[in-house]
């Protein structure tokens, strides 16, 4: 049963880290807890023999994107006040109530839908799925694949254009 124990450990850590992302007031801490959540999820993927996604999750998400976040936080050199912005306390109780309703309702929906499908569970994936992923990605999903690459190029150019330094004349205009 060590696998099961490992799984539940990951489960609990992921949940706790996710909570801490929201609860910690310091943005840098939030980012760190977010990375922890992602790593835990990667672990769960590994337990399901999804090595490829787990690797992507660690390299791209935890590695690249979160580093970008931290980088921006550092770059902006946020003042203390900005980093420790208080939350909307007056709203919080209502938001939590609403989200609880959401949780219950969606959970019930999933339960209903899955119960109807219980009898038709197909066999689970073979352990080595990477060749299959590659093949599917470059045949059935070739067009979305190409489109996503175009999207990435656009995002890179757009981000560079938006974030570049203004000319002095423009600067006074935008302030």
């Amino acid at each position: 049963m060590p696998v099961s124990i490992l799984y539940y450990a990951l489960f609990v850590i992921a949940l706790g880290a996710a909570l801490m992302v929201v609860l910690s007031r310091n943005t840098v801490y939030s980012a760190a807890f977010l990375i922890l959540t992602m790593l835990c999820l990667a672990g769960i993927f590994l337990l399901m023999h999804q090595e490829f996604v787990a690797a992507i999750q660690v390299i791209v998400y935890a590695g690249a994107i979160m580093v970008l976040f931290l980088f921006v936080i550092m770059l902006l050199n946020l003042r203390e006040r900005e980093i420790l912005l208080p939350d909307f306390r007056s709203l919080r109780i209502w938001v939590v109530l609403l989200v609880l309703v959401f949780f219950v309702q969606v959970g019930a929906t999933c339960f209903i839908v899955l119960r109807q499908m219980r009898d038709v569970y197909p066999p689970e994936l073979p352990p080595d799925t990477i060749p299959l992923i590659a093949k599917t990605l470059l045949t059935k999903y070739l067009l979305p694949f190409e489109l996503v690459s175009v999207l990435l190029v656009i995002a890179i150019i757009g981000a560079a254009m938006i974030a570049r330094h203004d000319e002095p004349a423009e600067h006074s205009d935008s302030s």
Partner: peptide, 20 residues
């Protein structure tokens, strides 16, 4: 932004409720 977000959440809740 968050005010719109709350509205969206209420809407999603209602839609799911309707589905249920």
């Amino acid at each position: 932004l968050q005010a719109y977000g709350v509205g969206m959440l209420i809407g999603i809740n209602l839609i799911v409720l309707l589905f249920l």
